[in-house]
Amino acid sequence: MNSLPPKAPPTHWEAFDHPAARIARDVAGGAGGWRGELLHIHIAEAASFEMEELPEATCVAGRGIEGDRYFLGTGTYSPKPDVREVTLIEQEALDALARNDPPLQGGPIVLAPEQHRRNLTVRGVPLNHLVGRRFQVGEVILRGGRLNFPCKYLEELLGMPVYLPLYNRSGLNCGIERGGIIRPGDAIIPLD
């Protein structure tokens, strides 16, 4: 009962076909030698739905995370072709918001993992360096397609002024190169 019809069939760009990734592929750089951890997995079945935390999730190459709005084609931005199979955000960025650092906000903003609407909350992963790069989350291989950017829609949903504070640390939109099961605690390592 009450399941919503998909707004449109899911349209995902192959991550490295995104203009941002295409350019980044040919530019040297990126950070190596790090090892991060998957802290939380969240999905929502449709646009604006509250995020639900999962103890494990199935990633499907070219589609997304099973049950998520961008897997189902029911997301706010599903009708727009883009790289949205999986989105990630750094716990470090959330920690910075919570200490009002830099002080662009009225005060500390505490954004719980279920509130930021990215699928994976990670620690120790330099997401801004991973556009055009491959990396591994547990057994799954992801491709960084483009930087995520905050949107006024999120501010509205949350009723919190997060737009400016999240700028440039809003995470990474990825495609799935190799699917599989992921769980909180999985190691995240760079591949190239």
Binding site: T76, Y77, C151
Partner: peptide, 10 residues
């Protein structure tokens, strides 16, 4: 522009 659906405000 971002969403082009009237929700993001960009």
């Amino acid at each position: 522009s971002s969403c082009e659906l009237g929700v993001c405000g960009s």
